[in-house]
């Protein structure tokens, strides 16, 4: 799998993502500065976490207009695989590649803690090593992760199986108004969503930070292993 990580001014989780990708591919991913526009030869483009442009204006709003995003749109149109995590998810919604928006966390505070995700659709390149209903642990770290969408969009996402992950309890119970399991207050406890062709996934938590037993577990590893299998086939 030829993977690349896009780096915007203010991106800060590109090294975490590179560690996770290297763990499954054996090679360091390419780092792409946001002024570059050549994405040829790539199987996967990752928009990592951070505070692109300091989160000024709105999280992800300015990065969505960076030169590289034109190339990312073209990459998406050709069926390329794109993963956006945290700020990367915000950039994907701001650039219209994924529906919905991320609001300030319901408690109006930055949240840094572990959460549990329930896999809602296992028929995607990002989730294929899980089974629907599987629960895994992952760190989250964000101030604006409260997913929202208008009623029609939400209905479509739910109807088409485009919710990839939901925040859940350790035992897989989903309850949107429970701050313990859905800490940022996301609508329908949505933690990750998919594009129509299932090849673009945006999610707020950080599976890339739980891919090594030393750091507390490998719960996030199936996402990256599955991606390698999906795009190499």
């Amino acid at each position: 799998m030829k993977a690349a990580i896009v780096v915007f001014p203010g991106t800060n989780r590109e090294r975490d993502m590179a560690l996770a990708l290297k763990r499954v591919t054996g090679t360091a991913p390419r780092m792409i500065w946001h002024h570059e526009t050549d994405l040829s030869g790539l199987d996967l483009v990752v928009l990592p976490g951070g505070f692109s442009y300091g989160d000024y204006l709105r999280c992800g709003a300015m990065a969505a207009h960076s030169p590289v995003m034109g190339a990312v749109r073209a990459f998406a149109a050709k069926g390329g695989h794109i993963l956006g995590v945290c700020n990367g998810f915000q950039i994907l919604t701001e650039s219209g590649l994924l529906p919905g928006a991320l609001l300030r966390n319901a408690n109006l505070r930055f949240l840094s803690q572990d959460c549990y995700l329930r896999v809602e659709n296992a028929q995607t390149p990002f989730t294929r090593l899980w089974t629907k209903g599987d629960v895994f642990r992952t760190p989250l770290a964000h101030g604006d992760g409260n997913y929202t969408a208008d009623a029609a969009t939400l209905e479509r996402l739910e109807g088409e199986g485009r919710v990839a992950f939901r925040y859940a309890s350790a035992t897989g119970h989903v309850q949107a108004d429970d701050v313990a399991s859905n800490p940022n207050g996301s609508l329908n406890s949505i933690a990750g969503v998919l594009s129509e062709n299932n090849r673009i996934c945006g999610m707020m938590p950080h599976p890339e930070d739980l891919v090594d037993p030393l750091m507390g577990g490998e719960d996030g590893l199936p996402l990256f292993k599955g991606l390698v299998e999906a795009v190499v086939r």
């Binding site: 560690l19 505070r109 930055f110 760190p139 750091m215």
Partner: peptide, 14 residues
Amino acid sequence: VWNQYDSTVGGQTV
């Protein structure tokens, strides 16, 4: 307090 600080960024927090 510490749940408001990002303690994992960098991917090296053991």
